[in-house]
Design a protein around this nucleic acid. Structure first.
Lengths: 343, 343
DNA sequence: TTCCAATGCTCAACCGATAGAGCATAATTG
DNA sequence: CAATTATGCTCTATCGGTTGAGCATTGGAA
């Protein structure tokens, strides 16, 4: 809608269209939102309204619409980062799946900052979200309480909580498999049965705890004892990983890397070693990265199955809010290196 | 707000708080939105309202708030992907910057699909966004028109348009620098003055066009002629890049890779070569990837300066909608490989 | 012819927050 | 002590769309 002098005026509303077509706002509204048959509006009037809407570039005012309705059809998600293959994929797939369900997704990135998380949740509640997905949240239960206070159901993704259904990767099984792959490679290619090194993450992180458990159980099943200081959890930062590895007196032949972020530090460290020494090492990582997969010492990567996680999430969103509080574990995908033709 | 039987009822509103505190909805509203001093509400009442809000987990209803106000303070962004270092970083920084300005960011991912882009723009217009950022849009001008029809200002990011101010990386200069780095490395380390291969992207893509121009100009400045079939633009997909390289009869010593996605294909191809042959190659890539940076043939990567792009964007958002339609070019960052101690 | 149902539309209230106007009461000034 | 100003709050209309109720008009059945 543009005034004569070319300066754009207010947006077109159903009242404008009603005046143009010569009918009531109610009729216009019902035509535009699809309830016109139920309301016994004639096809003729509907056509006139639709073409007037088209001509005037009408766009619904969601604020007004949602304000009046009881359901908003808006689903919220908080996510720690976008700048990361895993979470980036989660965000993309979630948007896609939500749209396919006729819902409107709104995602907010929280930088793993607990205060920002709470602020973001409040923000999403302001949008009258019908349901909120707490992905990788530092304190899922606090978020669940906040939402419950507003009558909004939540689902936890990636990290579990005790006050809402959770959908997470099966870190334990993934770690067990990955550890076995690395142990096999060390034994077959290097002739070593030494315990592996586990590096990355924090013990207060549920997923790290589970992966550590899988790591230790795989060793135990082979009767290999893991010295306590083979498990290094200095956080995820590459520099920390590198520093820890450089400070180690005994060097293992095989390394279990707990994330691709940590892997950067591991690879930097390996590249600083004499090539002969580096050649005698193997690693696997919990998280997939296409370049990390191409490095010669890589023997396998565990990739979280994002499409399945989202599928499970959407299935769960269907029967909220009277859902059970339980944990759904989605298997990971083990990606072995491409066999490249030897020179 | 919870009823006696534990089933959550409607969300808490200012009317609930007004009843609880024993005051008017107006007073509650003004306390919560910060206009209470202007409205001469006492500190005492303000405190009581705030603690009641806290206790009852009050969350503003943005729909109602925005409906009434003239400005929404919501800023929208459409972005092709999250699952990508560059766009992921853009999304993260944009959210951060918007929040710092007291604005509420809403980002939607469009998968580079023109129809989804339009749908997403309509969705954001429904939210009454004050301004919309079209990042990497396939058709920025169409989006600008759609928004203009609703009186919403737009800014283009990453890819320029003709109907709104644009903020983009200086692809030409970045490509010029990168080409020089690769040419230098080939000359100094391999003794080769052969023209490089340019791989990745599409010629209808503005950035690819600019990078190709920088690539060619750097050669021209050294008097090196580039055969036409040294410039390969089969899109970005790794498989395509690999296939094109495998099909090449003449092999160059140096490669200009037009994105990290393409780089995957290039690296796969290099790893399929006999090691001696691979050792005689050098590449640089337009886009940064930490693992790509660690590969031995890498001589440099150009990283787009996301913080500066966002800073320019925010600065521009300040004086909308009466802004000039022009193009701001932000310099890229050239990242040379870490010098690792030789064995 | 009379009654009833179907058809096609309009009216008015409402969702929750906000802004302008207004109205007491208290404090200050002449 | 009256007049003015400051203080502290409330009332009411409003944003745009939705919903239940309601009201003519027409067509067909009894």
């Amino acid at each position: 809608m543009t005034t004569d002098d070319g300066i754009s005026s207010r947006r077109t509303t159903i009242y404008d269209l009603a005046r143009i077509v010569g009918t009531s706002p109610t009729a216009v509204s019902s035509v535009l939102n699809g309830s016109w048959k139920k309301r016994r509006i004639s096809q003729k009037l509907a056509d006139r309204v639709l073409s007037a809407a088209e001509e005037n570039g009408y766009a619904l005012n969601i604020q007004a619409s949602v304000l009046r309705r009881e359901k908003s059809n808006i689903v919220g998600m908080i996510i720690p980062k976008y700048d990361n293959r895993f979470f980036g994929a989660i965000a993309e797939r979630f948007e896609e799946a939500a749209r396919a369900e006729g819902l409107f997704p709104v995602i907010t990135c929280t930088q793993r900052d607990p205060d920002l998380e709470v602020e973001a949740v409040r923000g999403l509640l302001s949008y009258q979200v019908d349901c909120l997905v707490a992905c990788g949240a530092t304190n899922p239960d606090h978020i669940a309480e906040l939402c419950a206070a507003n009558g909004v159901a939540t689902i936890n993704l990636d990290l579990p909580g005790g006050r809402a259904p959770s959908i997470i990767s099966d870190s334990y099984s993934g770690a067990l498999d990955l550890t076995n792959v690395i142990l096999d490679a060390c034994e077959q290619e290097l002739g070593s049965r030494a315990p592996l090194i586990f590096i990355g993450g924090r013990l207060d992180d549920h997923n790290t705890k589970e992966r550590r458990r899988g790591f230790l159980d795989a060793h135990a099943a082979r009767g290999i004892e893991v010295p306590e200081d083979n498990v290094l959890m200095p956080g995820y930062a590459p520099e920390k990983a590198r520093a820890v590895l450089e400070g180690m007196a005994t060097r293992a032949r095989g390394i279990f890397v707990n994330s691709t972020i940590t892997l950067e530090g591991v690879v930097q460290w390996m590249q600083s070693l004499p090539p002969a020494e580096a050649a005698g090492m193997r690693y696997g990582s919990f998280d997939y990265d296409p370049f990390g997969a191409l490095l010669p010492q890589n023997v396998g990567m565990v990739e979280q199955d994002v499409p399945s996680l989202i599928a499970a999430l959407v299935a769960r969103m269907g029967d909220l809010p009277n859902a059970q509080i339980d944990v759904t574990k989605v298997p990971c995908i083990l990606r072995l290196p491409h066999i490249t033709p030897a020179a």
